[in-house]
């Protein structure tokens, strides 16, 4: 599948997917989206790049072996989840309690509500990306 057409298409489509994933992630707290769904999108974009360019090129580009990268993503996501969830315990509130902050209106995105859960969601994003990528590398042969 590493034809010129796929490669050119992937080069255009993949950034679009990444941007969509970012938007879905940010608006995820009160609207459609969230860590899981944007992680799935990110992985689909990476899968597209894998298909277009092959796994070896990307590995050389990132200068890290996929298995190490995936594991680090997974673990850092998990740790982020634990830490974010545990912060309220230090403040003597139950585990996973969240606080939020309403940002002034931004261009394109409008009024945003940033909550403590967004860090938790970032942890979810990392964990899901890491695990899905390791599944991908597990089945690709």
């Amino acid at each position: 599948m590493t034809t010129l057409i796929t490669q050119t298409a992937a080069r255009i489509v993949a950034p679009l997917i990444f941007v969509t994933a970012a938007i879905l992630f940010i608006q995820g707290h009160n609207s459609i989206g969230g860590g899981f769904i944007s992680a799935v999108l990110i992985v689909s974009a990476i899968a597209l790049l894998y298909i277009a360019y092959g796994t070896s090129d990307l590995t050389r580009l990132l200068n890290i072996s996929p298995s190490t990268l995936n594991r680090r993503l997974l673990v850092s996501g998990l740790l982020l989840i634990i830490i974010t969830g545990s912060v309220p315990i230090l403040l003597n509130m139950p585990f996973l309690t969240q606080a939020f902050l309403i940002l002034p209106p931004l261009p394109f995105l409008g009024e945003l509500k940033i909550s403590g859960a967004i860090l938790f969601d970032l942890g979810v994003l990392f964990t899901v990306t890491g695990s899905l990528l390791s599944i991908l590398s597990g089945v690709s042969r």
Partner: peptide, 20 residues
């Protein structure tokens, strides 16, 4: 259902790898 879908995503991918 969102939670259940996430769970089934995990088990499905595991069972497919196991099939391989």
């Amino acid at each position: 259902v969102l939670t259940a879908i996430v769970i089934s995503l995990g088990t499905t991918s595991f069972v497919l790898v196991l099939l391989l």
